[in-house]
Design a protein around this nucleic acid. Structure first.
Lengths: 143, 143
DNA sequence: AGTATATTGAAAATCATTATCAATAGGGAT
DNA sequence: ATCCCTATTGATAATGATTTTCAATATACT
């Protein structure tokens, strides 16, 4: 059985000697139950509803910890805000970004990944990770 | 015959009623004769050598015009600085970014492009452009 | 040359993010 | 439960990149 992202983060916290705090737990729950691709500010505003006293520095710090623990990854779509997407061990996906309505869809394509590996090999390059984003108009906006 | 990027920008300026100024001309020449993927600051520093009085606001503004005219494109590699790469009508290339030394290499791959188009089609998505970046360790750093 | 308007450069303003720091809270040990 | 050490928090200030503002200047047209 696979560890849930909640467990992964809790193990990470334990191994790092991080304390378990009310705000950290809330941020974790909120992040896990939220949509993909939330910006720090969006998550901060969402958290304020149930925790009016929370500071944005705490949200920034905690999201960085999520990234470090491996349950989230920072992404930037060029709108000037850093977003965090959920990561599930071993998975990788790419994005379709609608430039009209802002919708973000995910996709996976084995063949593209293989070709990327080949390109890298041809350049003597060791891939650590990659980013593939297709920008355009989504089906809904097209119709 | 194809218009050069210099001509393309000059036509753009004309159609927009932009005036031709000493600094704009210098920035254009410098940009065109420089490496790919320069950040605004790098270009600004380079320009200072021949034009000590130039202001960075002017460089920022002018690079935005280049992007608008179609001869350049803004790219971000996650180092917090916006870079501008040269664009040549009809061409497209992707990037290998070395996370150790910062080197940026370009590549093109027809098959990947085709697969992207297919993914988009399957989602009813119209691609306007795309971004593919492979992050890792380059051959030089590997050896 | 004269005039209207675009452009420039310096400085101030913004925006997202990060660092600082005093006050507080967690989690043992006692 | 209490004490103590250390991590954490939230407010605020600081940072860094980019944008805006604005008075002075340059450009293009008549």
């Amino acid at each position: 059985m696979k560890a849930s992202n909640k467990q992964i983060f809790q193990n990470f916290a334990l191994s790092k000697g991080l304390k378990s705090t009310r705000q950290r737990d809330m941020i974790l729950d909120c992040f896990l139950s939220c949509d993909q691709h939330l910006s720090t500010e969006e998550l901060y505003l969402k958290l304020k509803e149930s925790m009016p006293g929370i500071g944005f520095a705490t949200v920034y710090r905690t999201l960085k910890l999520f990234a470090e623990s491996g349950i989230a990854r920072e992404i930037q779509f060029g709108d000037g805000q850093t977003r965090y997407e959920h990561l599930h061990a071993g998975e990788h996906h790419d994005h379709l970004v609608c430039t009209r309505c802002g919708a973000i869809m995910e996709f996976e394509n084995e063949t593209i990944e293989k070709l990327q590996a080949e390109v890298a090999r041809n350049h003597g390059f060791t891939i650590i990770n990659h980013k593939l984003e297709l920008y355009g108009i989504c089906a809904k906006c097209n119709s």
